[in-house]
Design a protein around this nucleic acid. Structure first.
Lengths: 176, 176
DNA sequence: TGAATGATTAGAAAACTGTCTAATTACCAT
DNA sequence: ATGGTAATTAGACAGTTTTCTAATCATTCA
């Protein structure tokens, strides 16, 4: 019973407001909180729920954590949602989550997957820690990668060879 | 804030089950209750909520009150529902409700509307007290109509002239 | 490194919701 | 009218949810 969860999330005034704000434009906890006259704690509580259900995703940008709406989730008709007992989970996405939860424990990469497909999933996951549209020097890249695994060199090299990041001398950048 | 209400209603496992049952086939309180292992009181509680929001309608048939799903409510996309703050109430339906609440107080018709449009709305409303697909003799028809207004003769005549019921000698029938 | 700022978590209070039992009401059939 | 059946209401209880404050954590910048 999975659509139920979706309706529960949508069935709260505060959360709907948050979703509507994010539909207009990406935002971050404090801004949302002050717009809605709530504490950061409250907004955080709701965003965690929304994120857990995949309605929202977040990336860090300098000071802030930017939350954005996952719009594709909403591209379904009520009839489908109501009459379908089970939400037909995208098998691709299901697999992705399984791989991530297998290889990443407590935020650390337990080992670098050997299978190319799994390796790419993990690399893409790690990639979300980087901002798009800005340059990183090698030191910064290493600092982020080492949070996941001691062998940051392999990770860095693989980011390049999977075409996820570009390298120009000492400068790295996420390929969008 | 009106769509919120819709999501709240859908965000309960029991209510979703009820809705799914009704999507399959019209049903009545006790049957739903026994299917879902709940008491009638509980099912009644939910059906009232659903009816209040117009998701469900009910008509009496002999012993039972038959509940049916208002399927047109579900013909919208999630995106619309989420991003539209106000649900655009059908103005026709809004008007209909106003007329009914103006002319019917405590289940009784305070007066028979003079305006044809309003008169038809009221007649159609009264018509829901009749079952479709079965014959009534004049005595039965009168018995039902008199609950609404002492002048049951006018009501009966108007049912015919508005084409809502057919008459063949002493036999009346709802026209579907 | 340390100060500042934003995000998160923990814990508790308050409000809300779904469910039940028991009593009552509404309707139908004889 | 009366008895039976279905539906509803009232009241109580338990569980869940939202929200806050205060404390802690994480990240950036000087």
């Amino acid at each position: 019973m999975e659509n139920l969860e979706l309706f529960k999330l949508l069935g709260d005034a505060t959360r709907l407001s948050i979703i509507r704000m994010l539909a207009r434009e990406d935002s971050f906890v404090e801004l949302i909180a002050s717009s809605l006259n709530l504490t950061s704690a409250t907004v955080c509580y709701h965003l965690k729920k929304l994120e857990g259900a995949g309605l929202v995703r977040c990336s860090r940008s300098q000071f802030y954590k930017i939350y954005a709406l996952n719009r594709e989730i909403f591209d379904r008709s009520l009839t489908d949602l109501v009459l379908t007992a089970e939400l037909p989970v995208d098998p691709e996405e299901k697999y992705r989550r399984e791989v991530i939860s297998t290889f990443i424990k407590g935020g650390r990469l337990v080992s670098i997957p050997v299978q190319q497909k799994k390796r790419e999933i993990i690399l893409r996951h790690i990639l979300t820690r980087f901002e798009t549209g800005r340059d990183y020097d090698e030191r910064e890249v290493n600092a982020i990668l080492i949070e996941f695994h001691e062998d940051y060199c392999t990770l860095r090299r693989e980011m390049i060879s999977f075409g996820l990041m570009s390298r120009d001398h000492e400068t790295y950048r996420v390929i969008e």
